[in-house]
Amino acid sequence: MAVIETPRGPEWIMALRHLWADATPVQRFALILGLMLVLLAVATPLLAPFDPDGQSLLSRLRPPLGFERSKAEYLLGTDELGRDLLSRCLYGLRLTLTLAALGSVIGLCIGGTLGVLAGVAGGRTETAIMAAVDTQIAVPFTLIALFLLTILGNSIEVMVFVLSLDGWEKYARILRGETRRLMKMPFIEAARAAGATPLRIARRHLLPNLASPIVVQFTLSFSNIILLESSLSFLGLGVQPPTATLGAMVGAGRDYMPTQPWIVIAPAVLILIVTFAVQTLGDWLRDRADVRLRPR
């Protein structure tokens, strides 16, 4: 009898294989694009040809390579202070991704803890946590962000704090629901009967089952946070100059749009690439996780 060879390996590698096999070409493209963006961001200090904040007044407002007046060493041209746009784009990408990653992770920690706590504890704790969640949902987050950035000032720390507040309530809501559902399952009851402490139940029995909704929500909120961060930086409310983030570069370059449009185009296109990759990945994972949303 022929034995069908099945690929072996740890469970998560198998899961990734399945994911890849199911993916559409666009989704595979987005995945590769996303990995490349992360690589670029990690390797930025090695790749960037210039200091992102280094000014060179003799080569101000140079267009990208191939246009009149361009200089060979500035691939994407320079801005109004003679800073190399390629280097600024790379550092901007790095900072944008770092801020979004930090914000998402902190948001996940806050929201995840509160959500699981609400689901496990119930009673007044749950009511209090869910009241906080409802209040935050009631107000558009852009307003909260504007308000907080004004009273706390603009710095990278404040920005990370603000970004982490966007999305914690979603983790809390989803994880509370999942936790409540799981807590009624027989295997939790069995664990409790066997004398497991609540902490052990949470760590060994709940968390592994919560991994999938967490991953999906993380991807979705990561893309939200990137949008939020670049919008705020675009408006001049995010990380302050001269530090480059992609949104801030588009915002600052607007003044030169009629005559030197490349200053805006380079970071704007990079933002489009980032949001395309992240949104596609988020949609893909959500559709897979939520059977009701699968294309029919």
Binding site: S230, V264, A268, L272
Partner: peptide, 10 residues
């Protein structure tokens, strides 16, 4: 969804 409004506007 994927195109941020400020990029579209710009």
């Amino acid at each position: 969804y994927a195109v941020p409004n400020f990029v579209l506007a710009t």
